[in-house]
Design a protein around this nucleic acid. Structure first.
Lengths: 129, 129
DNA sequence: CTAAAGCCTCCACCCGCTGGAGGGTCAAGC
DNA sequence: GCTTGACCCTCCAGCGGGTGGAGGCTTTAG
């Protein structure tokens, strides 16, 4: 399979697939013309990576997950730990964003949003903490 | 004032202040020895920027906000619009993270997390969508 | 035979800093 | 006067995770 077909099957941009090869996620062979030649298993790996990335796992998490995926003697505890740590990071991020959200929505509510210069949003930003 | 003092007052890393000069947020003069020489107004601007950044505004948002801040004839509507758009982006991000969170927490719950290789997390990731 | 589509490599860029190398300057203590 | 250490400077590289484009092959369709 050529890269274009694989890109459609794994639902990933061509550039991303080449990048994933560069960082060692896959090692497709080359045809005589220099084109990458992908196997079914590459498509599976790429789909796996795409799904993991869409759940927000970092590239390094993906690398670890991929290794576990390919390791028959893995312990599910190792997978769970990676996922758990990632969930913790997500929760932290959500909290951070929600804190911003609250402050911001209060400021927006307080702002007249007309043609006058007085603005509680700017006043807040200008406040020395 | 030298950069170190300013960094403490505005609660920003020195590197960040130099970067903010580089991208045109401030234009401190130079002393004879080549050191940056900051005014009170620079400290105010930097604190403003720090606060805006901590609310998640992008650098380009900050640039616009700073211009409005310094413009006596601004319309608060312009400020409000920037804030509103930013809030919308935050909401989108929160939703995205929460969707990940839900999927991920279900998978984690379903995973035994022991020394056996069977793992619903990996099974899910490997599922072709 | 030609045009378009597809593939290749390589390099630069995005954001918002951050770290480090390799240096000059200044204030305090001896 | 000299050293030490804290400051300051510039310049370059790198983070994550790709993305865009230039410039050039190859393959395929008509």
């Amino acid at each position: 399979m050529n890269i274009g077909e694989v890109a459609k099957m794994a639902d990933l941009p061509i550039k991303t697939i080449r990048y994933y090869e560069e960082i060692g996620f896959i090692q497709p062979k080359r045809s005589a013309n220099g084109y990458r030649s992908f196997r079914e298993s590459d498509v599976h790996k790429l789909a796996f990576l795409g799904r993991a990335r869409s759940l927000g796992f970092s590239i390094e998490d993906c690398r670890a997950l991929l290794q576990l995926y390919e390791n028959d003697t893995r312990a599910s505890a190792d997978v769970k730990q990676i996922a758990q740590e990632h969930l913790t990071r997500i929760d932290a991020k959500v909290k951070e964003l929600q804190a911003m959200r609250i402050t911001l929505s209060h400021l927006i509510e307080a702002c007249a949003g007309d043609d006058r210069p007085t603005c509680p949003i700017l006043s807040d930003l200008a406040t020395l903490s």
